[in-house]
């Protein structure tokens, strides 16, 4: 027993080293497998409340640019509204019995955002109290941003497009061919579109939008444009996509709630069960 204690004392540094390494590896593994949801309430409230004032101060510096972007977005929405009025002879009423409202938009601001890691997340300053729950889509002024992974009463965390776990179904605006968009972890400006067959017409500069198949992002939400493409070994194109959103400048975003999602999911899972 005495020699055991002498052994412990002699190698205490090495033993402590091994223990601490084991501890941190445990944290890494556990944190990844829990997908952050178990930490959401305590951990992200602390993180969010520290970053919120910092981000609020920094927001003043880019106020001018943000205003310009918001007024541009406003103008384009006005244009669409006028066109809609033109087509139907009147502006569509949201509570009409024929045209039911499918999507609900909740405005939010980004309080914490990373773009330089392999698994990037954002934190928003709105949470459960504003009706935000997991699996809602988040879009910015220019296009898709990410998907809500967890929410606490006042904050929500978002799986960014710039995350290697992210994937979304995107299609060409003109040809309707669709594939899955993923991020390769290299540049915050580009992502990769897979599964587009070789017979599809692809041109540099083509616009890509959400297909609506993933039932989170509304169909037609901008994703990006084709920057470059080549043929991989199989029967598919390898397409490099310039993302529409500029993730380093993100501040004002919109969280989208799909009011029909539960109904659609219930139908689809029920359908699968019967097969």
């Amino acid at each position: 027993m005495q020699s055991f204690f002498r052994f412990l004392l002699k190698y205490q540094t090495f033993i402590l080293f091994i223990l601490l390494i084991a501890g941190s590896v445990f944290l890494i593994v556990k944190h990844n497998s829990f997908q952050r949801t178990h930490f959401a309430n305590a951990f992200y409230t602390v993180q969010g409340s520290v970053y919120a004032p910092v981000r609020k101060t920094a927001a003043y510096l880019s106020l001018n640019r943000e205003n310009i972007r918001l007024s541009e977005e406003n103008a384009s929405l006005h244009t669409r509204l006028l066109q809609a009025g033109d087509t139907f002879g009147r502006v569509r009423s949201i509570y009409d019995t024929l045209y039911r409202q499918q999507y609900l938009c909740i405005p939010a601001q980004v309080v914490q955002n990373t773009t330089s890691k392999q698994y990037n997340y954002l934190t928003l300053n709105r949470g459960e109290l504003d009706g935000i729950t997991a699996d809602m889509a988040v879009i910015g002024p220019d296009g898709i941003v990410g998907i809500v992974t967890a929410s606490s009463p006042h904050f929500a965390t978002v799986l960014s497009v710039l995350n290697r776990d992210f994937s979304v179904s995107a299609k060409f605006l003109t040809s309707q061919f669709f594939g899955s968009l993923v991020w390769d972890g290299r540049s915050p400006y580009y992502a990769t579109l897979n599964d587009i067959p070789l017979h599809a017409p692809v041109h540099i500069g083509d616009t890509l939008v959400c297909s609506g198949f993933s039932s989170m992002f509304p169909e037609g939400t901008p994703v990006g444009t084709v920057e470059d493409f080549d043929k991989d070994d199989g029967n598919f194109y390898n397409i490099r996509v310039r993302l529409a959103s500029s993730f380093r400048q993100l501040y004002h975003v919109t969280v989208i709630k799909d009011l029909y999602k539960d109904e659609q999911n219930a139908l689809e899972t029920g359908h699968n069960l019967h097969n």
């Binding site: 601490l20 390494i21 501890g23 941190s24 590896v25 445990f26 944290l27 890494i28 593994v29 556990k30 944190h31 952050r36 930490f39 951990f43 602390v46 993180q47 520290v50 914490q112 990373t114 890691k117 997340y121």
Partner: peptide, 13 residues
């Protein structure tokens, strides 16, 4: 640093 970067364990390691 981990707590503020949202990468629990990596910086500690």
């Amino acid at each position: 640093v981990d707590l503020f970067s949202g990468t629990l364990g990596m910086h500690a390691f």
